[in-house]
């Protein structure tokens, strides 16, 4: 079936909404609705209109909606992406790792002088000589860096898991 032009389609919607003047209405009824494409299009637009009208109502929330919101005002403040338990476990893990590294450091495990890290060349021939690569490696310095990073992470975890929720709680209780 031939599709109606945009202009005629617009007229049909306005006809449906009762927005047409008497003259325009007459034109629509005589020209558009006398033929099948116009009649069918109006029928479909009417179905859409009826569907939307039928569902045009305000929906009622549950009776205790307001109470739930008010309860949520206090509980949500303590909600964090990191749960208390998980945060504490991570904090303990980080501190433990730092402790072990510190113990090893004080036991002198990393006291050896700068160790060259030697990478052997896989090909060795008379024609093709690849120089030996050595990277200076200071174990003590690296472990110190790791301990420093771990302590920083531990502080962030302590803040997120313990300090921030505690201060929020105090604020909400009006201290």
């Amino acid at each position: 079936m031939k599709k109606l032009s945009q202009e005629k389609d617009d007229l049909l919607i306005r006809y449906l909404d009762g927005d047409l003047s008497a003259g325009e209405k007459e034109v629509v009824e005589k020209e558009l609705l006398s033929a099948e494409p116009g009649r069918q299009r109006l029928e479909y637009l009417q179905s859409v209109h009826t569907y939307l009208k039928k569902r045009a109502r305000l929906e009622m929330p549950s009776k205790n909606f307001t109470e739930k919101v008010l309860d949520g005002l206090t509980t949500v403040q303590f909600r964090s992406s990191l749960s208390y338990k998980r945060g504490l476990l991570l904090l303990l893990g980080t501190l433990l790792a730092s402790g072990i590294a510190l113990a090893l450091l004080s036991a002198g495990v990393f006291d050896a002088p700068t160790t060259p890290l030697v990478v052997d060349a896989p090909i060795d021939s008379e024609l093709f000589k690849v120089p030996t690569i050595s990277i200076p490696f200071n174990g003590k310095l690296i472990v110190n860096g790791i301990i420093f990073l771990n302590l920083g992470l531990a502080f962030v975890l302590f803040d997120r898991t313990v300090l921030r929720p505690w201060f929020q709680k105090r604020t909400s209780m009006g201290y």
């Binding site: 929906e59 009622m60 929330p61 909606f65 307001t66 919101v69 005002l73």
Partner: peptide
């Protein structure tokens, strides 16, 4: 905080 209940009651139907 309790005054918020007035606003919630006023707009809960629309929001929902």
């Amino acid at each position: 905080q309790q005054s918020y209940a007035v606003l919630v009651d006023q707009y809960k139907t629309y929001a929902f």
